[in-house]
Design a protein around this nucleic acid. Structure first.
Lengths: 234, 234
DNA sequence: TTCTTGATTTAGACAGGACTAATACTGCTC
DNA sequence: GAGCAGTATTAGTCCTGTCTAAATCAAGAA
């Protein structure tokens, strides 16, 4: 496995970097066409709940190992090698989440934290067995796609629920995996991957979205801007 | 969980200490009746493949946290608190081994290493789910008993196969969990927990034991002194 | 009782990671 | 182009854990 010899802490940085690169096109306009999007030191520090100097320090070390490309004051991005490692651990994480939920009945909203604890010590061999036991799943319980073992990451929709217009019906593709409170709520009101929802109306600027869930005759559910921005649909 | 706040490395020391205390009555004659058996620094160092100074260093720190009682030049032993932590991680380990073998089909001889990688990050909640999924097992695949969640460790037979006299038939209680080569061999010849075996004869002093396995018409299998000392029977 | 030897411990370093305080850079504003 | 605000980096510490080399202890041999 590519991951061997990389510490838990280093893996956390690579994973955070991967996630932030994935998210970045949402805020910055450009950054497509293969241009590696640079992630700022502070974004990483914040994501990992670590001080900025700690992040600088680790980025330099990861750069020395050719896992990230880092230029002082200009942020960092994953190298090809770093991306491979990150994808391996993302695969571990999502497969574990799926396994925990499907095979062991761990609640949806706890799966992320449990998987995070175990992911860095999962061997390829056990991973492969879980993968097989689950029937070679392509998505985790939150609808995120699971990278293949050779590091290919299926493309997914990037349209957020927030951007859907009133009256339009869409299919929920994925919801965030952390934020257990939000997840608990989503599970309660039935906003899950694969479910069809319709935007009923929206509150004043930045206000909540009122969403009708298919097969549910109750009143539409109110979802905040934050959460709907993190829900992707198609 | 008791374990929280204890690093992976520290847990390894506690586990090793626990194992060595369990083994010690075999070589030293006394040490029963609640007398805490002291384990030497070098025994721990050797077990963990670490230098003696490293062991001294860690023992002192564990002593400062009241997990072991340590007296310079006199060795160390687990305190009540340290034993509780050790038992928790032994439970994690054995439950994981069982789960990996039973639920995921991991080969017998690989289970130990895989479980070791995962044990220190297993939450109580996931552990409990595995325990339930397995039907609340009392023994791991190598026949070691699994401590209860509140830290009770069922007593087991301590008679080794090496000490059985010629012609006597005994039931294999447990085999070692590491040493994958030996385990592979034992699985091959059918010397597994729960199997009845008979000592057929033994080689010259310290030589191999020839053992007949029940329901097996083949020639008796030869087992070295080392391995038969580590197999417990009743 | 003294000596020798082998096990232990002390001393001193080092690598990984993280923190705070102080300094330097970047980019935007005027 | 100069000044400023905010972001990043350097400096200097600390804590874990590990190592090697050097000093020390404990116990059996003489």
């Amino acid at each position: 496995m590519v991951v061997t010899g990389t510490s838990r802490a280093a893996l956390a940085y690579l994973k955070a970097l991967y996630a932030l690169e994935e998210e970045s096109p949402r805020s910055g306009a450009r950054g497509r066409l293969g241009t590696a999007r640079r992630v700022t030191t502070s974004a990483i520090a914040e994501r990992l709940a670590v001080s900025a100097p700690s992040a600088t320090n680790m980025l330099k070390r990861l750069a020395a190992r050719d896992l990230v490309s880092y230029e002082p004051y200009k942020g960092a991005s994953l190298t090809r090698k770093g991306r491979a490692v990150a994808l391996e651990i993302v695969r571990h994480h999502r497969l574990l989440e799926t396994y925990l939920v499907e095979a062991l009945g761990v609640p949806w909203e706890e799966a992320h934290a449990e998987a995070e604890a175990l992911e860095s010590n999962l061997s390829e061999s056990v991973e492969e067995r879980m993968f097989a036991a689950l029937g070679r799943p392509r998505f985790d319980p939150h609808g995120h796609s699971i990278p293949t073992r050779n590091g290919a990451m299926p493309k997914t929709s990037r349209r957020s629920l927030w951007d859907v217009s009133d009256g339009e019906a869409v299919l929920v593709a994925q919801v965030p995996d952390s934020h257990s409170d939000a997840l608990r709520y989503l599970a309660e009101v039935g906003v899950l991957p694969g479910v069809r929802v319709t935007i009923e109306s929206r509150g004043p600027v930045g206000g909540p979205l009122f969403v009708r869930v298919e097969d549910n005759e109750d009143a539409p559910v109110a979802l905040s801007k934050e959460i709907t921005e993190a829900i992707w649909v198609h």
